[in-house]
């Protein structure tokens, strides 16, 4: 494996990201603010309910849940779809496919360099503040499991976004498709409300999908809502979905490459 090539790509990705660093900081603030609104909404719901728990969550627990979900959802935006769409639409993909590095790996490297320099520092700082402010007790094992879940979830969402991006060869833009898939993931992954709030029949459907692995499972792990055997089962689910989505992605990408036509000229 040509590690030098990937490390050079990483540095280029970091430099490209730093060009828009100001933009990223402002956008992160606004992004995290949008999750604050969800907390306001649920606080209003709890106040009107005059109840101490809803769906097994107390008010502090639901606040903690959404704060953690809001922070870790920054990892969900890998930009693999945008990179791939641009390469296909602009015709750059032809030149990149003939280079002696794996194209999919290079896309991941480019988007990960962006994530490392932007989302990761913000997540670390924001989570630390959240854990201290909300008095969340976290053992070292829980923290390790949480980080492993985030890493596997990141790879999984990255593959899904890569597949979305590859649809660019069949359409003029993936924008609408991309944002709608992410909306579905946010909704069915526990980004709008904990999955416990879903009716029983819906929970069955949601349980069969991988979306819960991105937001609900890591947040519930950190907050202590799931533990012991449940965590073990979820970890197995992570590995299983990674194998399935990677396999599907590999077959699909092979098909897409065969159908690629260069841009005219």
């Amino acid at each position: 494996m040509n590690t030098r090539a990937y490390s050079s790509l990483m540095i280029i990705g970091i430099k490209s990201t730093l060009v828009y660093f100001k933009d990223f900081i402002l956008s992160s603030v606004l992004y995290l603010l949008s999750f604050l609104f969800i907390i306001f909404i649920w606080n209003a719901v709890y106040i009107s309910e005059h109840a101490t728990t809803i769906g097994g969550f107390s008010l502090p627990q639901i606040d903690a849940y959404f704060i953690v979900v809001g922070i870790i959802s920054m990892l969900m935006n890998t930009s693999n779809d945008n990179i791939l769409e641009e390469d296909i639409q602009e015709g750059n993909i032809a030149g990149k496919l003939i280079k002696p590095i794996n194209y999919a790996a290079s896309v991941f490297t480019e988007s990960t360099s962006n994530t490392l320099i932007t989302a990761v520092p913000v997540i670390i700082i924001a989570l630390t503040i959240a854990i201290l402010a909300l008095h969340i007790t976290v053992s070292s094992t829980t923290l390790l499991v949480f980080i492993a879940e985030l890493a596997m979830g990141y790879i999984l969402i990255g593959i899904i976004q890569f597949i979305i991006g590859s649809f660019s060869i069949y359409t003029t833009t993936i924008d609408g498709f991309s944002s709608l898939v992410m909306t579905m993931i946010a909704f069915l992954g526990g980004g709008i409300m904990p999955l416990n709030f879903f009716p029983l029949w819906a929970r069955g459907i949601v349980g069969a999908l991988p979306f819960q692995l991105f937001l609900y499972v890591p947040s519930a792990t950190l907050n202590g809502a799931i533990s012991g055997t449940q965590i073990y089962n979820y970890l197995v689910l992570y590995v299983a979905w990674l194998a399935v989505i990677s396999g599907l992605g590999f077959i699909w990408w092979g098909r897409v490459k065969r159908n690629l036509t260069a841009v005219g000229g």
């Binding site: 209003a44 719901v45 009107s48 309910e49 809803i54 709030f197 009716p199």
Partner: peptide, 9 residues
């Protein structure tokens, strides 16, 4: 869902 689990806003 919000109005199923609570009395809402």
């Amino acid at each position: 869902i919000i109005y199923n689990v609570s009395s809402g806003i």
